[in-house]
Write a protein that binds this DNA or RNA. Structure first.
Length: 450
DNA sequence: ATCGGCTCGCGCAA
DNA sequence: TGCGCGAAGCCGAT
């Protein structure tokens, strides 16, 4: 089957006599506007087979907590409802602790004719896919359902936004269209499924409490999970934020940003759907498509996203020259984590992260630049930023996360005048933030401890 | 309020 | 080989 978004990750063939095509949803956890699911449906239609959608959630991955579990579980009932309406089978398996089954994917794959999953460049899904491929004895396909312009269009790491932008704009007329509906020809038979964990909205609290995860990181105080919440957020943004986005996206108190990043990260909504709904605003498309797909491109061609090695030569050279510069003040990881610096704007940004699970994009740059300024060295600063994102951010562990963090160290940026600690890395100041944004309104909003 | 300079390197025009 | 220009910068001069 020819599809420019799909590639086979192993050498096995499609099994004749399989009961279904299995779609293993890792990153694009949605029933709608999902090219990976559609690929599975088309494969199934050709073979006169039904489709089974499998989505797992496990305990014990780094920083698994009530926050991430709640956000994911809140999406399960609606996914189930929409898949059922399309005639697609659904297995949601919640692995709560070591005594539960740990091989559900392989048991479901044993009866499948083929397995389809998401092609995704950050190390978690990428490592899953690489590890699973040789163990499956049926054809295993990875499909890029995350980017609007398929990642495969770019053969190398792009240097900056200005190098990828013209290429994306040239291709957009081909890709910025709603996906054609794909009809399921063979509905999945109704039968008991031994691995399915039934989830209702009212039961989520008890389910989360029963898992062996970090219960001290509380669910987001302001961002509900799920497809319905994602659609509501997009509709609200188009109605109330879009017209102001171009002028006020860097003014956090204006609330003119989309707030979609957690939903995009967990795949509850696709970038394509958001772009089509918000295409009237070019500045938003710049963020949603050019910036986001530059981040996917970076992740795809960078072996270690949690390292400073991938930075451009000028950035690494200027840090080498300034690594012994005196830092003052210097904070520990705990001081950063507990929002206990001398800077009330910085503390407010950290409290927004602790409480809601995101930081406004503009203040997040300031947040990151100051961690560089107030950490003992660059490597420690990087570790602090990654740790805080991976533990608390609902949009963490995304290609955007690592690209945004490394931007603070010069990635996709250019040199600026020399100064202590930063060398020629761009510097940001509290005065600049005060001049350009309403810092007092933001500090007041996030004043109290979460 | 607005503007140029700071500084590097990519990619295109020539 | 030369040249324009780049994710949100700052700073000093006007």
């Amino acid at each position: 089957m020819a599809n420019e978004r799909a590639r086979q990750l192993n050498g096995a063939g499609i099994r004749s006599g399989g009961d279904y095509i299995l779609y293993w949803s890792q990153m694009n956890r949605r029933a709608d506007a999902n090219q990976a699911l559609d690929f599975a449906v088309e494969l199934a239609n050709e073979r006169r087979l039904p489709v089974l959608f499998y989505e797992g959630l496990t305990y014990g991955y780094p920083y698994s907590s009530d926050r991430f579990h709640t956000f994911i579980l809140e999406g399960v009932p609606e996914t189930e409802k929409r898949l059922k309406a399309r005639g697609i089978g659904y297995t949601f398996y919640l692995r709560r602790g070591p005594s539960d089954a740990n091989d559900v994917l392989y048991r479901l794959a044993a009866r499948a004719a083929a397995v389809v999953t998401d092609d995704y460049p950050t190390f978690i899904a990428a490592r899953h896919n690489a590890g699973v491929a040789p163990k499956l004895d049926v054809a295993f396909f990875a499909v890029d359902a995350s980017c609007i312009v398929p990642m495969a269009h770019f053969q190398k790491r792009e240097y900056a936004a200005y190098t990828i932008r013209p290429k994306i704009h040239k291709l957009l007329p081909r890709y910025l269209w709603p996906l054609p509906p794909v009809e399921v020809r063979r509905p999945f038979p109704r039968r008991a499924n031994e691995f399915h964990t039934h989830v209702t909205g009212a039961g989520i609290g008890a389910l989360v409490a029963s898992c062996a995860i970090d219960h001290t990181v509380r669910p987001s105080a302001s961002i509900p999970g799920g497809r319905l919440a994602a659609e509501a957020r997009l509709a609200d943004f188009v109605r109330h934020g879009l017209a102001r986005y171009a002028g006020e996206h860097n003014e956090p108190s204006a609330r003119a940003t989309s707030g979609l990043s957690p939903y995009l990260h967990f795949g509850r909504i696709s970038a394509l759907e958001a772009a089509l709904a918000a295409r009237a605003c070019g500045e938003f498309l710049e963020q949603l498509i050019v910036r986001r797909e530059l981040a996917f491109n970076f992740a795809r061609f960078t072996p270690r996203l949690d390292s400073l090695e991938a930075l451009p030569d000028w950035a690494r050279e200027t840090m080498r020259r300034h690594r012994r510069d005196r830092r003052s003040p210097v904070y520990t990881g705990e001081q950063f984590e507990h929002a206990a610096t001398h800077d009330q704007l910085w503390n407010a940004a950290q409290r927004e992260l602790l409480s809601s699970g995101v930081i406004h994009g503009y203040y997040r740059m300031y947040w990151g630049k100051k961690i560089i300024e107030w950490s003992p060295d660059y490597e420690q600063a990087l570790r602090t930023m990654i740790y805080l994102h991976e533990r608390y951010a609902l949009d963490g562990r995304d290609p955007n996360t690592y690209t945004n963090i490394l931007w603070c160290f010069g990635l996709h940026d250019r040199p600026w005048p020399e100064r202590p600690v930063f060398g020629t890395l761009r510097w940001m100041s509290l005065e600049g933030m005060r001049r350009k944004t309403d810092t007092e309104a933001y500090i007041a909003q996030w004043r109290s401890a979460p």
